[in-house]
Design a protein around this nucleic acid. Structure first.
Length: 655
DNA sequence: GCACGCCGGATTTTT
DNA sequence: TCCGGCGTGC
């Protein structure tokens, strides 16, 4: 196992102190941590159940789990691997009584916003947006620090927490803070966990927040070992509470500790790495390191300039088609964006060019209104106390029961919603009363079908097909929305009951895409991934770096660094001189980051193919002009005293 | 209760 | 330009 490690990786595996592994992009970070865990187990230094390992996402959990499994087999299941939240959930559940928590109902993200909306309307505050309030409160909860809030927000935070408590619900941040509360107030329980876990591993240490730091600090003691892995140059989540000062201060924070830096990159060519090094070296707040690529290549990093965004998209498609037409059908190709709103244009172009693509990340499918509606039925089947699910479901499709009726129902004290309805039934007008009774009867019938087919492995799908039709939801939708619901029904096949499905969507993102598809995603979503060919479109100042982050330029630079280091074979950076932005034409400037790259590894290209420069043309709107530059789609034309970039199809040639 | 139209805003988002 | 929230009027 150790034979295919390089010297620094091996040193990290052999180190018996508290350890920080600073692992640059593509330096075998996961390999090292997995080797360390397996090595410890094989030497008998720790038993599998004496290890706790935290990851950043559920996907990363699966990845670590499967890599350890391939080394040590089923013993992997004895190791506590998971995200902070999932591990905390287990701990909180184990000590629910002590924490005064009845059941541990996790609240879904969109319901948090709903709660916040209610809080704000209760205190009659119309100036603060719910999303903003939620963000602020969330940050404070993640820091475990309400003192940083001003008076108004502190009140909002307390009211929000009160309402969650009333609902018997926990949000994600609560999972962490409840665990901390437990450990702080009950030394015996903390000691139990400190003794239990001899080795604590933390992945993505550069992106932990203050609460998570406290969680780790409490668990770490003289009798156990902590091993954190991360890369301060890839800290890109400060907007949601990540605090990279923890990784910078590691050796100060943890006694008897060491730092090992991995700098040998096995992913990208030397040109890509030298470019990335150049860029990131402009940051001041970092741990100095210099990646060295093990792959020599003559291929430079290409920078393409388009006249217009449309041309940029069109030309990227041409390059992709060219790559695919060579023997490289199996190559992985990705377009990485600073903002997801920029993807549209490129989606369209890929569609036109007949290139298969998929959008990765943001749960767009699950975010669609009709899917949320359908899911709300499953949620209500799974939890008869889930008021949010109920209130969404009862109003989709429209049944003549609206928000006023729902609000009245919510006031009934009973926690079971069917009881709630029955309790207030008589206070409604006969019209509403009839509609509600009708619904109750229908719901009881659906529930009984569900409990009848105990042995059917596809019963969730079956019952949802019945519900979607009988409720009238399906009928109420337009045809493309119907198709979405059809697709969604297919995804239910692998679930037996509503509970397992609800559990699944809470912890996993549904993603099914072809691995040969061209991938479109944000740079954030691409963290941890790698592709043979990477395109960075819309590499323009104001977009990347984003104008709203100019004051946090180092994080933008890290984000660009993450983007650059995703590429294995070849990197294309593209931008356009003008594009439609928020509904209007804008002139664009290339990203300042291009100037910060290694000019020796860069190659400036142009999309111009056949030049029409000098030709006299006529344009419907702007009149007569002379072409200055031309591309495949657009041309820069001088009309009198002004130059404009226009669609080539709109030009008529004249003599 | 609900449809419709106006207005404002438009970075990144997992757990 | 496009989407979602909110207010109005039936």
């Amino acid at each position: 196992m150790l034979s295919n490690l390089n010297p620094s990786q091996r040193e990290a595996v052999d180190c018996r102190k508290n350890l920080l592994i600073v692992a640059g992009a593509g330096t075998g970070k996961t390999k090292t941590i997995v080797s360390k865990i397996c090595h410890y187990i094989s030497l008998g230094i720790v038993m599998p159940d004496e290890i706790i390992a935290t990851t950043f996402t559920n996907k990363a959990t699966q990845e670590m789990h499967s890599r350890i499994k391939s080394e040590i087999g089923d013993d992997v299941d004895l190791i506590s691997i998971g995200t902070f939240h999932r591990l905390s959930l287990k701990i909180v559940q184990n000590h629910a009584k002590l924490l005064n928590i009845e059941g541990c109902n996790l609240i879904a993200y969109e319901d948090q916003a709903q709660v916040m909306r209610k809080v704000l309307s209760n205190i009659k505050n119309k100036d603060i947006k719910p999303s903003h309030a939620l963000e602020t409160v969330q940050r404070a909860k993640e820091k475990n620090d309400y003192a940083s809030l001003n008076h108004t927000y502190a009140n909002i935070a307390y009211a929000y927490n009160d309402m969650l408590r009333e609902m018997n619900a926990l949000d994600f941040a609560d999972l962490i803070s409840k665990t901390i509360e437990l450990w702080r107030n009950h030394k015996d329980i903390l000691d139990h966990y400190r003794k239990k876990y001899k080795l604590i591993c933390v992945d993505e240490y550069q992106d932990i927040n203050d609460a998570q730091y406290e969680w780790i600090s409490l668990l770490s003691c003289d009798d156990n070992q902590i091993c954190c892995v991360g890369d301060p140059d890839q800290s890109i989540y400060s907007f949601r509470g990540s605090n990279m000062s923890h990784i910078l201060n590691f050796t100060r924070d943890f006694k008897n500790s060491e730092k090992i830096v991995l700098e040998e990159n096995y992913r990208s060519t030397d040109k890509i790495i030298s470019n990335s090094n150049h860029l990131i070296s402009k940051n001041k707040n970092r741990i100095e390191k210099f990646l060295v690529s093990t792959l020599k290549s003559d291929e430079l990093v290409d920078i393409f300039v388009g006249m217009h965004g449309k041309e940029e998209a069109f030309e990227i498609c041409r390059i992709i088609a060219k790559i695919k037409s060579k023997e490289e059908v199996k190559s992985s190709i990705a377009l990485l964006f600073r903002t997801s709103t920029n993807m549209h244009l490129f989606e369209e172009a890929l569609l036109n060019a007949n290139i298969k693509y998929s959008i990765v990340g943001s749960v767009q499918f699950m975010d669609r209104a009709e899917i949320k509606d359908a899911v709300s039925y499953v949620r209500f089947l799974s939890n008869p106390n889930d008021f949010f699910a109920f209130s969404r479901m009862i109003q989709a499709p429209k049944r003549g029961i609206g928000s006023a009726t729902v609000a009245k129902i919510s006031e009934n004290a009973s926690s079971n919603i069917e009881d709630k309805i029955r309790g207030v039934l008589d206070s409604f007008t006969s019209r509403t009363k009839n509609k509600l009774s009708e619904f109750l009867a229908q719901w009881e019938r659906w529930r009984s079908i569900l409990s009848k087919d105990l042995s059917d492995s596809k019963k969730l799908r079956k019952i949802m097909e019945i519900i979607v039709n009988e409720s009238g939801l399906y009928e109420s939708l337009e045809s493309d929305r119907k198709e979405n619901v059809d697709k969604w029904l297919e995804t239910l096949d692998s679930f037996e009951d509503p509970e397992s499905y609800v559990n699944h969507i809470l912890w996993n993102n549904l993603k099914a895409d072809d691995e040969h598809d061209v991938k479109l995603m944000t740079v954030h979503a691409a963290k941890g991934l790698e592709f043979d060919y990477v395109f960075l479109p819309v590499f323009e100042d104001g977009i990347f770096p984003h104008s709203r982050s100019f004051e946090n330029i180092e994080e933008e630079r890290r984000l660009a660094y993450v983007a650059l280091t995703r590429a294995k074979k070849k990197l294309f950076i593209t931008y356009a001189q003008s594009r439609v932005f928020q509904g209007r034409y804008m002139n664009a400037q290339p990203s300042r980051f291009i100037r910060e790259m290694d000019s020796k590894s860069l190659q400036f290209q142009s999309f111009k193919h056949k030049t029409l420069a000098g030709k006299k043309v006529y344009h419907e709107e702007f009149g007569y002009g002379t072409i200055e530059e031309s591309g495949m789609q657009c041309a820069k034309v001088c009309f009198g005293s002004v130059s404009k970039v226009v669609d080539i199809k709109k030009l008529v040639e004249c003599d």
